[in-house]
Nucleic acid binder design. Structure first.
Lengths: 349, 349
DNA sequence: CCCGGCCATGACAACGTTGTCCAGGCTCTA
DNA sequence: TAGAGCCTGGACAACGTTGTCATGGCCGGG
């Protein structure tokens, strides 16, 4: 192991520690400032000999271009922001990664922020990113009013919403077909003979939750089944309350024989509850979950492609930046029903 | 819905679209540039009356401070970089989120980058982040030589390595007790009567993989069990090859009766393979996996706390930036054996 | 009433880079 | 050999902000 670098060894000096600038490099190489800039940026008009002198000076001083200054001068930061709910949620990891890959392909960095489903925090994050002059924003909105973004968009910040539409402004948005997916999932249960079907989902103020609820209602209506209030539980995602909600639906004189769950977190908890039941209860969940195929029975889900959402959104973002997109659009990606057993159980009443 | 903002409506003008600067605000408010700066930054020395005029101008113009320029002037970017392997991996999501929370508490933003386990890409990312003048770096290294970071560290970039130590430089590092955890997990299998125990892990050039392998060997040696080459599969993580490796160990005249898996991805695949076997094979995996408790049998794991790794690392980073840390340290966080059934199966031979 | 000192404010330089423009030296051709 | 044109290289301003310092007005005390 080489000699330890103690932080105490750091030279005092300017604020960046003691970083050489192009000026320093120029002095050392005995050339002008602009010549260094040319070499660093691979611009033409420098003889190989001069270039070599500059390269040597760069290496000797350990120079690295200060992109902060570059950004200030050029106006493009080559970075984009992604505001999502919670990076720790397995749904958002792949989405974020997909956005990062597209950004990378365009030479941009990705700044991540978690809103924790708090509209105020979302706004704070978005505006902070705008102050950093990110070139664009991919937003999974927590709030339902994004008029605060109008001046930013007008000022040239490319913006794409994902997973849920923007509120009160007209902007690009990339969604999954939540309505159709939920409708299909519930219809699947109905096709397997169920009539008393429960729904456990998030607060309907969240667009995805509302759409999935709408899909549930539509499927029930298609089949001519009147929905009872006792079958629906809205605004419930934390494990304890989901558990109580599920147990409630499963008790009483006419318990549900199947449950449709509105997102991955709910599904996981309901799987736990159902595992404790003596009766076999059918289940279809929105969002795929890892290992769903290994459970007994396998969990039938309506899967959305998180990576595709992220990729599509990021690609649109860069097309906005190209100037090749002008009018905001709404893009809906299909969902996919994956049958694994739990959704094909017959009613046990 | 309000009037559509078409991107075509954006005024041309300067590079940021057409953003007002402090100069514009000053002109409109009829005050000096510096007074605007004072108001924006809440500095004292401005009469309430003047301040109001400035605030009005700010609101009227939709001014937002350009943090790029601020950064250039102040020298601190209030952003840190996190370089990890793959944000889509469920292990890194919570880690990243934990780092973000700490950064947020210190008023900093987080820039994420995935190295895809490629040392070159890691270096490229790290150096790009340094060029952006991030204040600090949290790195989950892919490579094993980080001497390229020496000039940066010396120049004042706070640096903490996580999950795996830095190569060939002396730097802060926060690790899980991979050796101890693996040793304990394998000892657990031995305590339940196993002697022919397989190990499937990643390439030993990856520190965590090497340490876990070392733990496996140590536990076996403690029990006086000579390890056979056929029981070990190293450098294998993609599902197809893991499957073949597992099937190989489970066939032949003296198949293993238990398997220790070196990370979450391997564990998942091996669970799939074992589910197809008629014989019951014990399993202990490194890293917890979601729903592990719902499988039949539940999967016994050696769990590490990804969020704690991230949090600890980020806190050290900011303590470096405080100046309250000087000498690099190595911090090891304990792992936890979670018994759920699969690790307690008796040998079936 | 005058002067010292304080307070609000603004002019100016600087941060490190890139774009513009100009100068000087070279080559090539007539 | 002179002039045109090209190629290399450098001086300078500008990006939008903040730190430093100067200025001018006002107040209070002697």
């Amino acid at each position: 192991m080489p000699e330890t670098i103690r932080r105490a060894d750091r030279l005092p000096g300017n604020r960046y520690g003691n970083r050489p600038t192009m000026k320093d490099v120029a002095a050392r190489a005995g050339v002008g400032l602009k010549t260094v800039s040319r070499v660093v940026n691979g611009e033409p008009g420098v003889t190989p000999e001069t270039e070599q002198r500059v390269q040597d000076a760069i290496a000797a001083l350990g120079f690295r271009r200060n992109d902060s200054a570059r950004v200030l001068r050029k106006g493009r930061t080559a970075s984009i922001g992604l505001v999502l709910e919670d990076l720790a949620d397995p749904f958002y990891g792949p989405l974020s990664r997909a956005v990062e890959e597209v950004a990378r392909a365009h030479g941009a960095l990705l700044i991540n922020g978690s809103s924790a489903e708090d509209p105020e925090r979302e706004q704070e994050l978005v505006l902070t990113l705008c102050a950093r002059r990110v070139d664009g924003l991919v937003v999974i909105p927590a709030g339902d009013d994004h008029r605060y973004l109008e001046p930013e968009i007008r000022a040239g910040v490319a913006t794409v919403f994902v997973d849920r539409p923007a509120g009160k402004i007209d902007a690009d948005v990339v969604l999954s077909d939540n309505y159709g997916g939920a409708r299909g999932g519930v219809a699947h249960l109905i096709a397997h003979g169920h009539r008393r079907i429960g729904f456990i989902g998030d607060m309907p103020r969240i667009h995805t939750a509302a759409e999935r609820l709408r899909g549930y209602r539509a499927a029930m209506e298609d089949a001519g089944i009147p929905v009872e209030d006792a079958w629906m539980s809205l605004g419930v995602t934390d494990p304890g309350r989901v558990r109580r909600a599920a147990e409630g639906m499963l008790s009483g004189p006419a318990p549900v024989t199947a449950i449709f769950t509105g997102n991955n977190r709910v599904t996981v908890t309901v799987v736990r509850v159902l595992a404790e039941q003596s009766r076999r209860v059918a289940l279809v969940g929105f969002d795929d979950i890892e290992l769903a195929d290994l459970l007994q029975p396998g969990v039938t889900v309506v899967a959305q492609d998180a990576a595709a959402l992220g990729r599509t959104a990021a690609e649109r973002l860069f097309r906005q930046l190209d100037g090749s997109l002008v009018v905001p659009e709404r893009i809906e990606l299909p969902t996919r029903l994956i049958t694994r057993g739990s959704g094909e159980l017959p009613p046990a009443d």
